[in-house]
Design a protein around this nucleic acid. Structure first.
Length: 107
DNA sequence: ACGGTGACGAGAT
DNA sequence: TATCTCGCCACCG
């Protein structure tokens, strides 16, 4: 378990209920703003754990980037909706309403 | 140590 | 606005 991965877990665990954060934001808080991909890889092993709110982590578009085929994406959306997050027809959530960290682009 | 891969991001077309 | 390409970092063989 590298320091980066541990930092990512801490950050993800800090995401408030009903809120979402982008991989880039988490990577930045973890110390490496450019390690968004590394964040995804780290969370990949956490999908089996329910003690970490990995489902609150989405891409910069506010849409789940998990596998649609394995059903992970469906589960993630379902949980987020349970938390109060609303997805539009594009499968994206309003960052201004559910985004934990401020986002420069999109709405 | 090297190269390929992937739950990403930003810029260009 | 949607799609493509390149660059980023961490992980596996």
């Amino acid at each position: 378990m590298t320091e980066f991965t541990k930092r990512v877990r801490e950050t993800v665990a800090a995401i408030p209920y009903g809120k979402i954060a982008s991989y880039g934001s988490i990577a930045a808080m973890a110390g490496n703003p450019k390690a968004a991909r590394g964040v995804g890889f780290a969370l990949r092993s956490l999908t089996s754990e329910t003690d970490l709110p990995w489902w609150r982590v989405v891409n910069r578009h506010g849409a789940v980037s998990t596998s649609e085929l394995t059903g992970t994406a469906q589960i993630q959306r379902a949980i987020l909706e349970s938390e109060g997050v609303i997805f539009n027809g594009e499968g994206r959530a309003c960052w201004k309403d559910f985004g934990w960290d401020p986002h420069p682009d999109d709405e």
